[in-house]
């Protein structure tokens, strides 16, 4: 029931493996999601101060052969995000974020466990360039620990003078524990506060990400 609650919250909102900032504007809600063949992640984040946000997250690993545990699992967490440092410049911005939370880890065929979660995010972006790194650590009570590492670089071929549809090319590298890393080229589109990304990994797995702010 608790897991269903997290899942609904996450779907209402939306991610664990982010395409956006863990802290946005004060009073802002971010819905985020990411899905591919082997796994999906969704999150909803509410920013209650310019430096702090609270997030509900849901993650599902669906492919036992690609799981570091050798079995499917789900992780549902509530997390506090903190903007540790921000650098403002004319036309660029750099950020470091920390996150810590707790929840429920549900490995297939085994009892649910308490889960502690920590993460670090760093990004730098200008109107035409984007670099981001993310590290997430899941520590269940009994099961093996799981970590996610992600690096992204991107560029925008054009910058609009006024409001309109923006496009980016993104290259993403992602790895769980010591499993085979995935490299995925993505096309990013966004208009106002709605962003989505489409891509296919070099192994041919289709990927879809989305993010909405309101």
């Amino acid at each position: 029931m608790l897991r269903l609650g997290f899942f609904i919250l996450a779907l209402l909102g939306t991610s664990q493996i982010s395409v956006a900032h863990p802290v946005i504007f004060k009073g802002g809600i971010e819905l985020q999601g990411e899905t591919q063949k082997k796994d999906s992640a969704f999150s909803t984040t509410y920013t209650f101060s310019p430096y702090w946000a609270v997030a509900a997250q849901y993650y599902e690993m669906r492919e036992p052969s690609m799981s570091p545990l050798g079995r499917t699992f789900e992780a549902s967490t509530v997390q506090i995000n903190h903007l540790l440092k921000r650098w403002w410049n004319e036309g660029s911005q750099g950020n470091i974020y920390l996150g810590a939370g707790a929840g429920v880890f549900a490995p297939q065929g085994l009892p649910s466990e308490f889960l502690a979660r920590g993460e670090v995010n760093a990004d730098w972006e200008s109107t035409t360039l984007y670099v981001a790194a993310r590290y997430i650590y899941l520590h269940p009570d009994f099961s093996e620990d799981v970590d996610f590492k992600k690096l992204r670089v991107g560029f925008a071929p054009y910058v609009l003078e006024q409001e309109g549809l923006n496009s980016w090319f993104i290259l993403e590298w992602r790895q769980m524990n010591t499993e085979k890393a995935e490299v995925t080229p993505l096309l990013r589109f966004f208009f106002r506060s709605v962003l989505f990304e489409l891509g296919s990994s070099l192994d041919g797995d289709f990927k879809f990400n989305f993010m909405i702010h309101y």
Binding site: F25, G28, G91, Q93, L160, E163, F190, S193
Partner: peptide, 30 residues
């Protein structure tokens, strides 16, 4: 400073429009 994308523009517009004194906001990212 730090405004780099349409999503940034959305946050700025929304934050300013909450103020009773403000009638409209126009953002030029470039």
């Amino acid at each position: 400073k730090g405004m780099v994308c349409e999503v940034c523009a959305y946050g700025i517009r929304k934050s300013l429009m909450k103020e009773p004194e403000v009638q409209d906001v126009e953002v030029r990212i470039k």
